[in-house]
Simulated assay, not measured.
Amino acid sequence: MELPFPIAEPPEPEQAEAARKLFAGPVEFLKGVVAMPGLPPADRIEVCFAGRSNVGKSSLINALTGRKAIARASNTPGRTQEINFFTLGDERYLVDLPGYGFANAPVAVVEKWQRLLKQYLSGRPTLRRAFVLIDARHGIKAVDEEIMSLLDSAAVTFQVVLTKADKINATTLEKTLAQTRKRLQNHTAAFPELILTSSEKGDGIPTLRATIAALI
């Protein structure tokens, strides 16, 4: 019997190359947004990356774009304090959302981030998919479930991307996959494939690039 939420297959060579060229082309930081009126015009499709603080969002965006510091990586949880927009070619935005959950910041600041995050996810008409990043070492936590439920209610399709998959052995990975699949069955907006990645080793990066390139 086929498993629910299988791991996405690698793209065909021509798809992988087209996606590689897209991400090797112009990718520019556009702006950081701290309130909804600051959002750029909804004039192109966009995908966003959400995840707990220190899950590896910045490192993943850097790996996708082949740039070392287009999204500033940091070992300090909660360093991303705004919604960061990047242009991908002429037709797409990549959006780096504030890390949710624990953050090394005052409570009032964290609460402001969370409000902005929820407003964005609930009201952005050009948002085609949210990629919810889950640390493969830890699996889905309660705070991840909150974001997934918000995406369910907003009818925004989301796809789980497991990060840091190279940091654990095969047995631990299977446990994480089983837990993730079980949790996702409760979420109506969950896209029915998982993507396994390692930003350090490049695992899964072509698959994620091709997935984004195919969204029109």
Rank of each mutant, 00 (worst) to 15 (best):
residue 145 E to P: 15
residue 111 E to C: 03
residue 148 M to C: 08
residue 106 P to Q: 15
residue 112 K to F: 15
residue 122 S to I: 00
residue 145 E to D: 08
residue 121 L to S: 05
residue 108 A to H: 15
residue 151 L to W: 02
residue 133 L to T: 12
residue 119 Q to K: 08
residue 131 F to S: 07
residue 151 L to R: 03
residue 146 E to W: 08
residue 109 V to F: 15
residue 107 V to Q: 15
residue 132 V to M: 12
residue 111 E to R: 15
residue 92 R to A: 01
residue 132 V to Q: 07
residue 149 S to Y: 08
residue 136 A to R: 01
residue 142 A to C: 00
residue 118 K to I: 11
residue 152 D to L: 14
residue 131 F to N: 05
residue 100 Y to H: 05
residue 90 D to Q: 05
residue 93 Y to W: 14
residue 149 S to Q: 09
residue 123 G to Y: 06
residue 117 L to T: 02
residue 137 R to T: 08
residue 151 L to S: 08
residue 107 V to A: 15
residue 93 Y to K: 02
residue 150 L to I: 03
residue 92 R to G: 09
residue 138 H to M: 09
residue 129 R to F: 12
residue 117 L to A: 01
residue 105 A to P: 03
residue 101 G to I: 12
residue 92 R to D: 03
residue 154 A to L: 01
residue 144 D to H: 09
residue 94 L to D: 03
residue 149 S to L: 15
residue 88 L to M: 07
residue 146 E to G: 04
residue 126 T to S: 10
residue 98 P to H: 07
residue 109 V to M: 10
residue 129 R to S: 10
residue 97 L to K: 12
residue 93 Y to F: 15
residue 99 G to I: 11
residue 140 I to V: 15
residue 93 Y to P: 09
residue 124 R to Q: 12
residue 106 P to S: 10
residue 132 V to F: 03
residue 99 G to W: 07
residue 97 L to E: 12
residue 124 R to P: 07
residue 114 Q to W: 07
residue 95 V to C: 05
residue 110 V to M: 14
residue 94 L to R: 14
residue 88 L to Q: 00
residue 102 F to L: 10
residue 148 M to G: 00
residue 141 K to T: 04
residue 145 E to L: 13
residue 100 Y to V: 02
residue 140 I to W: 06
residue 115 R to K: 13
residue 150 L to Y: 08
residue 98 P to M: 06
residue 135 D to A: 06
residue 90 D to R: 06
residue 93 Y to D: 12
residue 102 F to C: 04
residue 148 M to L: 15
residue 120 Y to L: 01
residue 124 R to S: 04
residue 109 V to S: 04
residue 135 D to P: 13
residue 135 D to V: 05
residue 139 G to D: 09
residue 97 L to R: 07
residue 122 S to T: 11
